[in-house]
């Protein structure tokens, strides 16, 4: 009984002292906006659409980001250029619904959609938080500099014929009798 009381008391008192002693520890708070915090490159902030190293839109409108999105805030429509390259006709993110979970980035097979360290996205009107492709598309490659989906994929597009993708043989001549 006595040891119980003693243990309890010392435990409480030690706790009180430990917490009290934090009075002399420097606060962790960063005084944003007076002080700009360091944002890590993989911070999950504002979403952008990047371009491939050749300067073309990376997004191929495969819809995987949209289906991965837990709040369903991405809507897009596929379209195609004359030479078979897929791209989004429109690509809309409703940032007023976005929870910055980064699932879209993980789902993206072409590294097109990426989250950036920018988190300063407040708006006075919710309508202004709806971003279209024109707002989302940046000029660079974002975090991934080398990847170009169409250089790997077998689909023929303008400037890349069948058999010109990575690890592809020249197209078969079906009429050939050679083995």
């Amino acid at each position: 009984m006595l040891t119980l009381i003693k243990d309890t008391l010392t435990s409480q008192v030690v706790t009180l002292w430990r917490v009290f002693s934090h009075l002399w520890v420097k606060a962790d708070t960063v005084e944003y906006p007076d002080v700009q915090p360091y944002m890590f490159p993989r911070w999950r902030g504002r979403i952008i659409l990047s371009r491939d190293p050749d300067g073309e839109e990376r997004c191929v409108a495969c819809n995987l980001c949209a289906v991965a999105c837990p709040v369903d805030c991405i809507a897009l429509q596929k379209t195609e250029d004359e030479e078979g390259r897929w791209y989004p006709e429109f690509f809309r993110i409703n940032f007023s619904r976005c929870i910055m979970c980064g699932f879209c980035e993980e789902a993206c097979p072409t590294n097109a959609i990426q989250l950036t360290p920018d988190f300063e996205m407040a708006e006075y009107k919710r309508q202004d938080m709806v971003w279209e492709k024109e707002d989302l598309l940046i000029d660079g490659t974002g975090k991934y500099h080398d990847y170009n989906f169409y250089r790997v994929a077998g689909k023929k597009i303008g400037g890349k014929d069948k058999g010109e993708a990575r690890n592809e043989a020249v197209p078969v001549n079906v009429r050939s009798l050679l083995p």
Binding site: N63, A66, V67, C69, V71, D72, C73, I74, A75, L76, F90, R92, I93, N94, S96, R97, R126, Q127, M129, V130, E132
Partner: peptide, 12 residues
């Protein structure tokens, strides 16, 4: 997918 963005261009 896209329930919260499909018509967001018209009205958020």
């Amino acid at each position: 997918s896209g329930r919260t963005a499909m018509t967001a261009n018209v009205n958020v």
